[in-house]
Amino acid sequence: MDALIDVTPAYLAGFLMTLQLLVISGAAAFVVGVLVATMRISPVPSLRVFATVYTEILRNVPLLLVLMFCALVLPILGSDLDYYPLALIGLTAYTSPFVAEAIRSGFNGVPVGQAEAARSIGMGFTQTVTLVVLPQAARMVVPPLINVFIALTKNTSVAGIFFVNELFKQTDAATRDNPGSVILVLIYAAVLYLVITVPLGLIAGAIEKRVVVAR
């Protein structure tokens, strides 16, 4: 039991760092993801191709290698950033295609008749998307988006391998310092992760139910 009290300060610091990684890279990935999703449905072919290639490549590279790229290649390209901002960049880049795909799936969930109706009364691309499709897609996008952020919460642990003092790195250190109570220390860390992911999951479930009823 003493071990749990001993590791608490380090765990809290790690937990806060994990939260920071989640919030900052989550917000950034949302912005980038919306841009990429817009490019994928846009009328300009080159934008569509670019967005598709971006999505395909980033989705098929393990996060470990994306972060390795940030920690290794970005400094050669002239960045003198610390490991923390580099991890933020990596997590953002890795998460953004998943955000884009979640948004696109929401778009696909809007009945085609809606877009057809908008077009038939003479609306253009921008009007159809912003006035008719997007407002309906927004509510359906929320549950899959929350799932993406839950995945991001768990993915922040990989940043621990790259010298960011978040929860997983603290756990790693704590298991070394408390060889007698490894199980307790690990479960403690698991519970801290659950404190973030379970409520997010519950919110996603609740919203999903409401959306289903509304349709």
Binding site: K154, F168, Y193, L194, V198
Partner: peptide, 19 residues
């Protein structure tokens, strides 16, 4: 299920490895 889904894979691998 909730427990397994909510914690990072990395932590889970580490858990099995150590415990």
């Amino acid at each position: 299920l909730e427990f397994v889904r909510g914690i990072p894979v990395l932590l889970m691998i580490f858990f099995v490895f150590l415990v």
